[in-house]
């Protein structure tokens, strides 16, 4: 992920820069690391894959940073890493932490974001089974489900059997969780 990549660190706080550089070198074997006190008059940003910038720099050079292809990470003094930041905000890394915590946070930031995607629902359950599953997770009993969907109780039971067999989930709590995860019901409905 980071191995061999070009990293740029921009901050007037030289000690913080050196510390971060050390952590990066020890745990992530990056390519080149360039440290700058200021972004002015340097084209290092154009070359960088990842750029750590102080919050000062971020505020002053936003336009330049926004158009950069580099992954921008803003260095903060706030102890809360990325807490409550809206999705549009840049990634942040708090320097007010121990070395280990900073390394953990870096690992999280560098993790590929598209690694895992939800398993498809349509190919596993039929529309009728999905209806039954929705009712089960809302807490309805077989008899009620049969009435609601105008099918026999026997059919409800056989749908439930198929659902359990397909998903490998037996309990009502498990099925409810599945339904919530796949947006079949909302948390208010169960």
């Amino acid at each position: 992920m980071v191995a061999g990549k070009k990293i740029l660190i921009v901050s007037a706080n030289q000690l913080a820069c050196i510390g971060l550089k050390t952590i990066l070198q020890e745990s992530f074997s990056p390519g080149e690391i360039i440290v700058l006190a200021d972004l002015h008059g340097s084209d290092a940003l154009a070359e960088a894959d990842i750029a750590f910038v102080s919050s000062d720099t971020y505020v002053r050079q936003q336009a330049k940073l926004r158009t950069s292809k580099a992954h921008i990470i803003v260095l903060t003094e706030d102890a809360r890493d990325g807490a409550d930041t809206p999705a549009a905000d840049p990634d942040t890394l708090s320097m007010a932490h121990t070395e280990q915590e900073i390394a953990d946070r870096l690992e999280a930031l560098f993790r590929p974001k598209t690694g895992r995607s939800p398993g498809g629902l349509a190919e596993t359950l039929t529309p009728r089974e999905t209806d039954v599953l929705r009712c089960v997770s809302q807490g309805y009993l077989n008899k009620q489900i049969a009435d609601m969907l105008s099918i026999s109780q026997h059919t409800v039971i056989s749908h439930r059997k198929n659902i359990t067999q397909k998903l490998g989930i037996k309990t009502v709590s498990g099925l409810t969780m599945y339904a919530l995860l796949h947006g079949l019901i909302t948390s208010k409905e169960h």
Binding site: K170, T171, G174, Y178
Partner: peptide, 10 residues
Amino acid sequence: NDLKNILIKY
């Protein structure tokens, strides 16, 4: 069993 199944799959 359901929980670990959900963690593995979803």
